[in-house]
Design a binder for these strands. Structure first.
Length: 578
DNA sequence: ACTAGGTTGCCGGC
DNA sequence: GCCGGCAACCTAGT
């Protein structure tokens, strides 16, 4: 009797390969109902269409349910006589709350809920337990002596200790138990995969990347066609300006939606590493990239308020500016720095940029130039990236803003030199900012330095066709470093002040207190931050003044205020970016 | 208490 | 090509 009908609820994990939850749903079931809720991305909708096609090839189909999960799932379970709901576990805060509600309403109705872990390589709970109850906060910390079996360590060390992740699950049967005939809620007319228009979008997507498991596997094969490249991959050496053929795999959106299983990817990598004599190692290797994902999922899933500064125990508290003008210029690709604006345009058009390109724009927005909070940048990425992934997005923004994981805030990316190093001709800029397509290479990273007649000849007048830079990088980056130093000092002072209070361990997983105290920065944190803010202001003025004297030729003044005013006069240049 | 090392900076001086 | 400056960072391990 039990197990006659199951519901397979697809959320992430939009694939048939390595799908333990789907296998679970098929076990002893005469009827399996593969269902999903509606979301808003075209990449997602393509993934759903592909999943539906794959299910149809096996005698089934996808049923897209409209409604709130905790309401609609019990209703169809009753209608279909389903006794089990099978799903892939999801540790994101939103998913946890949703799944708790669904579990409650289904179990009240006598429907069993069975979760499988297949979105990450490992069960992150297990990893944390094996690390002594706390997630590691470093990816790699080379042990100095012979690698002992110490209690806590870096993430790579932890993974070495735990061993290889489980292999991918076997493929599902060639014929899947189909939904029963004649069920009203399984009517194709009401459960078809929606179109973009139906979800409320009027514009056509501009991303060149197509969603779906089929595409994901094809892309995986394309990368693995060159085993030497796979074995020799070193992330920091890949070219962020490559766009005809991106320098990395672009598998991130497929991993995000689960069109590609990380375990399948990982097992393929191990096979190549076994076959090739030499291969690169984490953290820079291709396998290292999967471990970064795993690392951030592990820390993120076990840290309260991970995607915020306040109340986030791993995040440094920094006095970011709420500068709407700067934020808007950055978001709308009109900072006046072609390298930055081209990347932000690629983000809007493609929904994807190279990892190091993300570094450039994230550093620029936060600790490098504009001193705007990483949370604002994270929100923009969240809206525009096709590979937007809750934990990875938050973690990388904290990294780049030197708020967590990384603290060498004086290592600032130059919005001019960094791109030039890879692409001296400015091909990337010409592709994404056509207004600059005829600017000579000599000036393309700094068009404001081009003589007026050169600008005229290139058909691009700076200040009219393309914005002037909103900051003087030499001035702004020095000021930012000074403010970061002050914020760090304030943090350490607050931490010292807070140690007197003792009580709860800093990174305790149950640190549910909403008070903004990071790394044990306790009650007196506010005072310390406030007093340091005064020092910071002085430091900014001092550093900016000194740098301003050095930067003789430029018109940008010694005060941030002045550059802000200049930026206000640049609105006319907006269309230049489009 | 102290030290080594940390996926991926940049500039100027030698 | 290798330093030090930026400003004295963090975590893990001894």
């Amino acid at each position: 009797m039990a197990g006659k009908s199951s519901i397979m609820w697809f959320r992430k994990g939009l694939r048939l390969h390595d799908n333990p939850a789907l296998l679970d749903a098929c076990k002893d079931a005469a009827h399996v109902y593969p269902v999903v809720g509606v979301n808003r991305y075209s990449f997602l909708l393509e993934s759903l269409r592909d999943l539906d096609a794959s299910l149809r090839a096996r005698g089934s189909r996808l049923l897209v349910l409209r409604g709130t999960p905790e309401q609609v799932l019990p209703r169809v379970a009753a209608e279909w006589g389903a006794t089990r709901l099978c799903l892939e576990a999801d540790t994101e805060p939103y998913a946890r709350a949703r799944d708790a509600a669904v579990r409650q309403s289904l179990e009240a109705a006598g429907v069993e809920v069975a979760a499988s872990i297949s979105h990450t390589l490992y069960d992150t709970e297990m990893l944390v337990a094996r690390n002594g109850g706390r997630p590691p906060l470093t990816m790699q910390a080379r042990p100095r002596g012979a690698g002992g079996q110490g209690p806590a360590g870096s993430f790579t060390k932890l993974v070495d200790k735990v061993g290889d992740p489980p292999p991918p699950a076997p493929d599902p049967p060639a014929a899947l138990p189909p939904p029963a005939e004649g069920m009203p809620s399984a009517d194709p007319a009401v459960t078809g995969v929606p179109t973009l228009a139906e979800v409320g979008f009027t514009e056509e997507p501009t991303t060149p990347f197509k969603g779906g498991e089929t595409e994901a596997l094809a892309r995986l094969e394309a990368s693995f066609a060159d085993p030497k490249w796979v074995a020799g991959f070193q992330k920091p050496e890949t070219d962020p300006s490559a766009f005809d053929r991106p320098a990395t795999t672009v598998l991130s959106p497929y991993l995000k939606f689960g069109c590609l299983s990380p375990r399948l990817f990982h097992s393929r990598l191990l096979a190549v590493y076994r076959a090739q004599k030499k291969h690169s190692e984490p953290p820079v290797s291709l396998r290292g990239q999967l471990l970064w994902r795993e690392f951030f999922y592990t820390v993120g899933a076990h840290t309260p308020n991970f995607n915020r500064m306040a109340g986030n125990p791993v995040c440094r508290q920094i006095d970011w500016d709420a500068n709407e003008e700067f934020l808007a210029a950055w978001r709308e690709a009109r900072t006046g720095f072609p390298w930055i604006d081209a990347i932000m345009t690629q983000l809007r058009e493609w929904g994807w940029m190279h990892h190091l390109a993300r570094h450039s724009v994230a550093c620029f927005l936060t600790r490098g130039d504009l001193y705007v909070s990483w949370e604002r940048g994270m929100e923009v990425f969240e809206e525009l990236l096709i590979d937007q992934d809750h934990y990875l997005n938050a973690a990388n923004w904290m990294w780049l803003s030197a708020s967590a994981f990384f603290s060498q805030y004086f290592r600032v990316y130059s919005p001019i030199s960094f791109g030039k190093k890879y692409d001296p001709e400015g091909r990337f800029i010409r592709r994404f900012l056509p207004v600059l397509k005829d600017m000579p290479a000599k000036y393309i990273y700094e068009p404001w330095t081009a003589p007026l007649e050169v600008q005229r000849k290139a058909g691009c007048l700076v200040g009219k066709d393309y914005p002037r830079p909103i900051v003087d990088h030499a001035v702004a980056s020095k000021a930012c470093i000074a403010r970061m130093a002050a914020a760090y000092r304030a943090g350490s002072a607050a931490a010292t002040a807070a140690t007197g209070e003792g009580a709860d361990g800093a990174a305790g997983p149950s640190g549910s207190s909403p008070a903004p105290k990071a790394k044990g920065r306790g009650g007196k944190a506010k005072e310390a931050v406030a007093s340091a803010a005064g020092k910071a202001a002085k430091a900014v003025a001092g550093a900016a003044g000194a740098a301003g004297k050095k930067a003789a030729g430029t018109a940008a003044g010694s005060k941030r205020q002045r550059t802000l005013k200049e930026s206000l006069g640049l609105q006319g240049g907006k269309e230049a970016a489009s």
